[in-house]
Every structure is written in structure tokens, then in C-alpha cells.
Computed example of a mutant assay.
Amino acid sequence: MEDLSEVYKSYADEVKRFLICLTSNVDLAEELTQETFYQAVKSIHRYNGEYKMSVWLCQIAKHTYYNYLKKVKNADHLSVENLMQKGVDIPSSKEQPDVEMVRRNTLISIHKEIHLLKEPYREIFLLRTSIQLSFKEIGEVFDKSENWARVSYYRAKLKLAERIDGNEL
């Protein structure tokens, strides 16, 4: 087994990118990344090498995010300020503010549409586009075949295209 600090150095950015796509919140993604690696250290004895380390860590990250959602739902005390803070941090360009504003609004609209996809399509789309997992690895995450992952990703793209065309971004 690799040294745990090396595992963190190698995979933290990938896990964080995956969580940013799931949460749409950079700060929350950073917090969940830390929790993911904490959970990985606690359960490292269960890693058998059957899947790539990145796939295993993304599975833990996914479950960590789902647990977070359960806690938030049970707490049921999100303030308006917290809801307003959610969103994608996209740097702005001072050279072309109008172009940057259109780009930002388009990216946010697309991101919203991605998050409106039903599961497993949303997660498959994010795994493929955000951390570039292969179809074989996506199949492994869901305990399905590589072909299932290909077909599901294709369907996710079609559903997303329908949503975007319907909303005329």
C-alpha cells in the first residue's frame, strides 16, 4: 500500500474536482475532500486493489457527500445566506467584462441543468467529464458493465442536450 501522504498528494485534487461538480460549492468540496480522506484512512484495510485508487476514493467521496446531504436535510435549518453562497466560483476577466459575464451565466446555467439530471445520469456525466474516468471505471463505481456506463453516459448527454435546448441557453 502506498504511503498515505503520497495517496493524498496524488488524488486530493481529483477528489476535490469531483466534489466541486457534485456540490457546486468550492468550500464544501474542500471540507468533504478532507472528510473523504479521513474516511479512507479509517477504512484503508478494506481497499483490496480491485479498483483503481481514484475510483475507490471517489466512491468514498460520493458517500461522504450523501451523508452530508442527509445531515443537512435532518438539520433543516439552512439560512437564506447559506443558500445564496452556493454556486460555482468562476474567476472573472477584467479585460472583457461583458463576454465574461455571458460566459459565467452560461456556465452556471449549464451547471444547474447538469444538477437537475436524475441519478445515475448526473453522477455518470460528472464522473466522465470532471475527473475523466473511463467507462470501465464508471461501470466499476456502479458495479455495472463498461457497456452500461457507455449507454448511460450517452443517455445523460442526450437528456442534458434536451434540457439545454429546451431552456435556450
Rank of each mutant, 00 (worst) to 15 (best):
A75I: 01
V41I: 15
Y51G: 02
N67H: 14
L78W: 13
K94S: 05
I20K: 02
V41T: 07
S43L: 02
R103S: 08
I110V: 15
K118N: 06
L116R: 15
N74S: 09
L117P: 11
S109A: 12
R46T: 15
V80I: 05
L107K: 10
R122F: 13
E113Q: 13
I124L: 11
T23V: 03
L28S: 06
D98R: 10
N105W: 02
D76W: 14
K70H: 04
I44C: 05
L126D: 04
F125R: 07
V102R: 12
N48K: 13
K71F: 08
N67K: 11
R128T: 06
K70S: 01
Y66G: 00
Q59D: 02
T36D: 04
E31Q: 07
E30K: 14
T36Q: 11
F125A: 01
Y66N: 04
D76M: 07
I114S: 00
R103F: 14
V99T: 12
F18S: 01
P120G: 04
H115G: 04
W56T: 07
I90M: 12
N67E: 05
E95P: 00
V99R: 15
R46Q: 09
N67S: 05
T23N: 01
K42T: 02
E50V: 11
I110T: 10
I20P: 09
T36P: 04
L126W: 11
Q85N: 03
E81T: 13
Q59N: 01
Q96Y: 10
T23L: 02
V99M: 15
K94T: 05
A40D: 05
F37K: 12
V102Y: 03
C58M: 15
R17A: 07
L78A: 08
Q85F: 11
I20L: 01
G87P: 05
E30A: 06
M84L: 12
M84I: 12
V80W: 09
A29H: 13
R46A: 10
D27R: 15
E113M: 06
T33M: 10
K94A: 01
I108N: 07
K62A: 03
E100C: 07
S109Y: 00
L116F: 14
E50R: 09
M84G: 00
Y47H: 11
H63V: 04
S92A: 04
N48R: 09
E119G: 07
V41W: 14
G87H: 00
I44T: 05
I90A: 00
T129A: 03
T33L: 01
N67A: 15
V88P: 00
H45F: 08
V72G: 00
L32I: 10
K86N: 09
L127N: 06
E95M: 09
L78H: 03
Y68I: 05
T64V: 13
L83E: 11
S79E: 10
S43G: 13
V26G: 00
T36G: 02
F125N: 03
K52H: 12
E35I: 12
D98V: 03
K86T: 09
N25K: 07
Q96C: 01
S54E: 15
L116Y: 09
L32R: 11
V80E: 09
K16D: 09
E95K: 10
T23K: 04
D27A: 04
K62F: 13
I124D: 01
A75Y: 08
Y38Q: 12
T64M: 00
I44Y: 13
E30R: 12
K71L: 12
L107H: 01
S93L: 10
R17P: 01
D27I: 14
Y65D: 01
A40Y: 14
M101C: 03
V102L: 14
Y65K: 06
